[in-house]
Design a protein around this nucleic acid. Structure first.
Lengths: 373, 373
DNA sequence: ACTCAAAATGACACCGGTGTCAATAAGGCA
DNA sequence: TGCCTTATTGACACCGGTGTCATTTTGAGT
């Protein structure tokens, strides 16, 4: 018979039965109950719960079985109080685009499921002069295990600094590396819009307008820069009068859409830095009685639901929001892990989804001129 | 000089200064610190924090000032551990429509802000056979202060029963009263779709199709019933072959949209039970080369973003999701309050938003026949 | 001044875990 | 076999609040 421990071996199965019998009133077991049934100290049970290597294997197995049998679950509040760190992960966001927020949340939750960690959502307003203090209090008071920052708060260096000061784990989701690699999930927006540009260029477009995103968002620069890079590969450049300043809202897209109609010479295509604005310019065309993409091809960015709801369906660049959420959560749990083994993927590359809002420019008769770079 | 307390009066301002001086290392104050500075017991401070009426007014004022001055914040984990109830509110949802989820969340958070409570999101899958157990564990282990249930899990009676057993506060958001009034936020979907019906009837439509929502959702029945009620006021009824069974998805709307085109005689209008399906129908028309609302008027339900992104913009019924979230959170905090004074509003009535997807049926020449009921 | 109920406050254990450090057991080696 | 290092375990205080119940004050009434 295998030796289990130097003390008289405890019959863990019997202990579980004992609990079942003596607990007719359905009290939830605590660590003390487990310890007594297993005839060990609370501390040993605690070690098992926390996967401490300082436990004899046989002891561990037995206690784990017992825990399973009687359905013990450590109290996160007590654990949090004692260890000064809760079992909560915060998601701090300021861009309330529903598609984005929800998908990131779902991605994070995919990873959190069954880990005992829970997700606490915390919207904020960067324009508020107390938002940093609010976030600090949130993190400090709740003793968050970690936080995930999404654009555009994720770009706030002061906030990041505060979080670092607090010693809290964090992951920043952004379109460019703003921090140590292991603390970032970067969505390669630049590569994505490069694809968008190539797509239009291949179709033969030459006169292409760009609707830029809100200046204060890094993604706005990345998307625009990537797009111009892509066009440059085909020797195309965007003249200043062809770049319009939007702010990522549908309304700005709508307004700028009609502005585009007044451009002379008229562009044959437009790249809107997100789907909302793309939908806006599409609507502007409809209002003007046009039927895209006949006179104007449109490409968006994000591939949120809107892209497939509008008509014609939007050719756009897909940002895998849910996957991004998952990656962020995964990396968050590796935050303190310095081993070279750690550090999984922390980049996602958006990809072009071709739909119906782009086509060969009307001034080209039959086929495009695919002048490959 | 006003008497403040029977003991030698404590100078709370001086106490605050004392703290500032002796705490160069920036330790966060605990209840013990406050108690010592105020020369009272921890318990008294605790009473002040919890607004217990058992504290002398002068004492209370002083301690409150002190708390403010030194920036004391009670530790939610310790409070939760001791009182067996955390400062977390859970939102349990299964309908991941981003618009809905985010707006409800924002509404709840509007109310939670600065209360010390935080929102924990918990999506679930009603089809999973463990979702009830999962939810139970979630609530029990986290010792949630309360939960807010949104459709359609909110309709699950077994879940509600489990929550009741746990003694947890809860509010159910649904389209009909499934529970005690004070535990419900009901969105009067029936009244909303009645409006939609009246609108079409007033425009002169007679042959009107209906796309029903997912059968297992109460809202599907309410919306359909309300719509038929509204039509009935104008002596219109919907023949069986005009009601199509959808499932609230865009895809079902798309499929059913082309089905509608095959109907003979063709309806002049269709009521889709939500915007997603309405958008689907609209897209089906576009695919078929039609231009709504020329041959077919469309009205949706929800007024999510999609409604204004499609072309023509959707006439629809607005459900004030954010407001619903706020109401739910407000009622949640009154859960145990039996006073008749308690119990604020717990109903919201959607209202019709007229846009561009409905018009006088083409077979009527100039003006509608507004046969008021 | 004395009595007593009501008002205000405090003492102390406890919530359910973890951190620290000491104590004990086991295995390797001279 | 005795000594020393390593592996395992436990004792106990403590995290920062709240619940219970006793104790002290206070103010009205006589």
């Amino acid at each position: 018979m295998a030796r289990t421990s130097r003390k008289a071996a405890v019959d863990f199965k019997a202990a579980a039965r004992e609990w079942a019998e003596n607990n007719k009133d359905g009290r939830k077991p605590t660590i003390k109950d487990v310890a007594e049934l297993a005839r060990v100290s609370k501390k040993t049970v605690s070690r098992v719960i926390n996967n401490s290597p300082l436990v004899n294997d046989a002891t561990r197995k037995g206690i784990q079985g017992l825990i399973r049998d009687i359905g013990y679950q450590p109290d996160p509040l007590a654990r949090g109080l004692a260890s000064r760190r809760s079992y909560l992960v915060g998601m701090i966001y300021d861009n309330p685009t529903p598609q984005y927020v929800v998908n990131i949340q779902l991605g994070i939750l995919d990873v959190l499921r069954n880990t005992g960690f829970e997700l606490v959502v915390h919207p904020c307003d960067r324009k508020s002069d107390t938002f940093i203090e609010d976030a600090r209090r949130f993190i400090e008071v709740q003793k968050l295990f970690g936080v995930i920052l999404t654009p555009s708060v994720s770009e706030d260096e002061r906030l990041a600094e505060v979080i670092r000061e607090l010693g809290c784990a964090y992951i920043r989701i952004a379109s460019v590396a703003l921090d140590m690699e292991r603390r970032m999930i970067v969505t390669n927006d630049r590569a994505g819009s490069r694809e968008a540009a190539r797509h239009l260029a291949k179709q033969g477009h030459k006169r292409i307008a760009v609707i830029a995103g809100r200046r204060s968002f890094r993604s706005a620069h990345e998307r625009r820069a990537g797009f111009e890079e892509g066009l440059a590969e085909y020797g195309i450049s965007v003249p200043p009068e062809y770049v319009l300043q939007g702010d990522y809202t549908f309304e700005s897209g709508l307004a700028l859409g009609s502005a585009i109609l007044d451009l002379d010479p008229a562009p044959t295509a437009v790249f809107a830095s997100n789907d909302e604005m793309a939908a806006g310019v599409m609507q502007a065309l409809h209002v003007a009685g046009q039927t895209p993409p006949d006179s104007l091809s449109i490409v968006g960015f994000d591939d949120f639901e809107t892209a497939t709801r509008v008509w014609p369906r939007l050719t756009t660049v897909r940002t895998p929001a849910r996957e991004i959420g998952m990656l962020a959560a995964e990396r968050l749990f590796e935050f303190d892990d310095d081993s070279p083994a750690a550090g999984g993927r922390n980049q996602t590359t958006p990809r072009l989804i071709e739909r119906d809002s782009t086509r060969i420019p009307s001034d080209l008769q039959s086929r495009p001129e695919p002048e490959s770079p």
